[in-house]
Simulated assay, not measured.
Amino acid sequence: MTRKIDYGNLMHAAMRGLIRRVLEDVRDHGLPGDHHFFITFDTMHPDVEIADWLSDRYPGEMTVVMQHWYDGLEVTGEGFSVTLNFGDSPEPLYIPYDAIRTFVDPSVEFGLRFETQEDEDSSDDDDEDVAPAGMIDIDDDAEAKPKPKKDADVVSLDAFRK
Rank of each mutant, 00 (worst) to 15 (best):
L10N: 06
V75K: 04
S89Y: 05
K150V: 02
A142K: 07
V154P: 01
S107I: 09
S156D: 06
V64F: 04
A131D: 11
D98I: 15
I136Y: 01
T116P: 06
V108G: 03
E49L: 14
G60R: 06
D125N: 15
S55H: 10
D139K: 12
T40Y: 04
G111P: 05
A14K: 15
M44R: 11
I100F: 04
A142L: 06
D153G: 06
S55P: 00
N9D: 11
D119K: 11
V108R: 15
I138Y: 03
F37C: 02
D153L: 03
F160Y: 09
R101F: 05
L54A: 09
K150G: 05
M135R: 12
D34F: 08
V64N: 00
R3F: 11
S89A: 12
L54R: 14
R57T: 13
H29D: 06
S156I: 00
V154N: 04
D119C: 13
P46S: 04
T116E: 05
R113D: 00
T116S: 11
E143L: 14
D153K: 12
K150I: 01
D141R: 15
I95T: 03
K145G: 06
P32T: 11
V26F: 02
L73W: 01
H35R: 07
E74M: 08
V48M: 03
A131S: 13
H36R: 14
D137G: 09
F37T: 03
V64M: 07
V65H: 02
I19W: 03
D158T: 13
S81C: 02
A14D: 07
H45Q: 03
A51I: 11
P92G: 03
D139L: 12
Y70L: 01
I50G: 00
V22P: 00
V48Q: 01
R161N: 04
K162T: 04
F103D: 02
E115Y: 13
A13N: 10
D28H: 13
G134H: 09
P46Y: 03
S81N: 07
L84W: 07
T83C: 10
